[in-house]
């Protein structure tokens, strides 16, 4: 409870760190904020070319099928890889000044969330312009999905950022894990490709459920199946609680480890 009170008191710090991250990151690049959109768009082009021209997938409007999950996937994988360095990168600050350390992972996850939401606007534009259309009822599930994914991501950032302070390998390990996880989640292929009997296991991966959810909303234009969201709900809630506890324990010795 004290943790929450502390974070609330430092809400302005969270806000300004998010702002600094969003404003500062592209300050001196020519294309500036556009990079937020360009990065997923480039990935979209590469994968679309690969899976419609070279290895054609029998999926209609593959680029939409892919893009609606690629954007949330990038949010997730950034949290895993870049999230590991969140505390370590701010060691000058951590070593010299007090603030609730949880502010760092929270601010990072929030700024990644903002990035994803902005990219989602591009998704909306694409589905409308391409004539694919939007189902407003299905869209109602979107805030829930975004919240779930935020919780899952926050839990992961809390844990990996704290562990990385003690074990610098974490960052490399996570790079590999994120790469593998991409294929364990329905990013470049459709959920239906997974054999029926493996599907239960498949959906234990919280990101599989969340990505399928996004795909239902935008691509199939229907409300997501609740059963696939059980894992993300459990993972998100329990994960965040455990994440705060673990982070709270590990942060006591951050300074000595830097």
């Amino acid at each position: 409870m004290n943790v929450l009170k502390d974070i609330y008191r430092y809400r302005e710090m969270v806000r300004s760190l998010v702002k600094r991250d969003l404003q500062g990151r592209y300050k001196n690049s020519a294309l500036g904020f556009l990079w937020t959109f360009l990065n997923p768009l480039f990935q979209l082009c590469v994968y679309s070319f690969l899976f419609t021209v070279i290895i054609p997938m029998p999926i209609e409007k593959y680029y939409i099928h892919l893009f609606v999950v690629l954007v949330p996937w990038i949010f997730f994988s950034t949290c895993m890889t870049a999230g590991a360095r969140v505390v370590l990168d701010q060691q000058d600050m951590v070593k010299k000044i007090y603030f609730p350390r949880t502010v760092l992972p929270i601010a990072f996850t929030l700024s990644q969330l903002v990035n994803m939401l902005l990219s989602m606007l591009v998704i909306l534009v694409i589905v409308v312009v391409s004539g694919h259309g939007i189902n407003l009822v299905a869209l109602l599930a979107l805030p829930g999905l975004v919240l779930l994914q935020f919780l899952v991501c926050l839990a992961i950032v809390l844990i990996v950022s704290a562990v990385t302070v003690y074990l610098r390998d974490m960052e490399m390990i996570l790079g590999v894990v994120a790469f593998a996880l991409m294929y364990a989640a329905p990013v470049i292929y459709a959920e239906s490709y997974i054999p029926e009997k493996l599907r239960g296991l498949y959906y234990c991966n919280p990101m599989a459920g969340i990505l399928s959810g996004y795909r239902s909303v935008f691509y199939y234009k229907e409300l997501p199946d609740v059963s696939i969201l059980i894992s993300p709900i459990l993972f998100g809630t329990i994960g965040v609680v455990l994440g705060f506890l673990a982070f709270g324990r590990m942060q006591r010795h951050f300074v000595e480890q830097m």
């Binding site: 008191r9 600094r20 600050m93 010299k96």
Partner: peptide
């Protein structure tokens, strides 16, 4: 102890005041 924690070189002095002061737990 540590002055200028969290200063971002590319942001203006005014913007940095907000960042720096918020690190001390001040509200907007």
């Amino acid at each position: 102890l540590e002055l200028g924690a969290g200063f971002h070189p590319d942001l203006s002095g005014r913007e940095n005041i907000y960042i720096n002061a918020s690190i001390f737990g001040m509200t907007r």
